[in-house]
Amino acid sequence: MTDPNLPPRDDRPEVVHHTTINNPSTGGGGGAGWIGFLVGGLVVVLVIIAIVMFSNGGLDRATDTNVDLDVDLPAPTLPDAPRAPDLPDLPQVEPPTAPDPTPAPAT
């Protein structure tokens, strides 16, 4: 300790060099910057999609939806082909029989 009753010393150098040592922590948390950037980018993309969806695509669309269609169907190529109600009846087919699924009793 210095004595406050003594005059100040003049033998001190005018330039004092200090050394600073930075010790970064090794406890993790060092890679969170890119995750924030990624989440922010996803939020921006979702906002753009929501704007497009809720503004009906952002295009001026026609409000009149009355459409008149007139389609000319070609004539049948086979003149002797029967029409759907004139088809012949299907023959009666007896359903197949299956063997009894229970096993025979043991004797």
Rank of each mutant, 00 (worst) to 15 (best):
N5G: 05
P82Q: 13
S25A: 15
A81R: 05
P95A: 10
P82E: 05
P91I: 03
G40R: 05
L42F: 13
P91T: 08
T65W: 03
T97N: 06
P13Y: 03
P24I: 03
P79Q: 08
N23H: 13
A106G: 07
L90F: 12
G58S: 00
P91A: 09
T97K: 06
V15M: 03
P105A: 09
T20D: 07
V39P: 00
A106W: 10
P105H: 02
G29R: 03
V47R: 04
N22F: 10
V44W: 07
I51C: 09
F37V: 11
T107P: 10
T102D: 13
P82N: 09
P76I: 03
F54R: 06
N56L: 09
D64C: 06
N66S: 14
G29E: 08
P85T: 06
A50P: 12
P88C: 01
G29N: 11
R12M: 08
G28A: 10
I49F: 06
D89M: 03
V52S: 08
G30D: 04
L73N: 11
V16F: 04
I48T: 06
P96F: 04
E94N: 11
D68I: 02
A75W: 02
V47H: 01
L6S: 11
T65N: 10
L38A: 15
L38D: 10
M53L: 12
V44S: 10
G33R: 10
G28K: 11
E14F: 09
F54T: 12
V47S: 07
M1D: 06
S25P: 10
L46A: 15
I49K: 07
T77F: 08
T20C: 12
V44G: 12
S55K: 02
V45K: 02
A75C: 01
P99Y: 02
I51N: 13
P88L: 00
D80N: 14
D60K: 15
G29L: 06
I51G: 12
E94D: 14
G58T: 05
A104H: 11
P74V: 04
D68C: 01
V45P: 03
T107R: 00
D89S: 13
A81M: 10
P99L: 07
L38H: 15
L87S: 04
F37K: 14
N66T: 09
A32Y: 13
A84C: 00
I48E: 05
L69T: 02
G31H: 08
E14M: 02
R9L: 13
E94L: 10
D60Q: 08
T19Y: 09
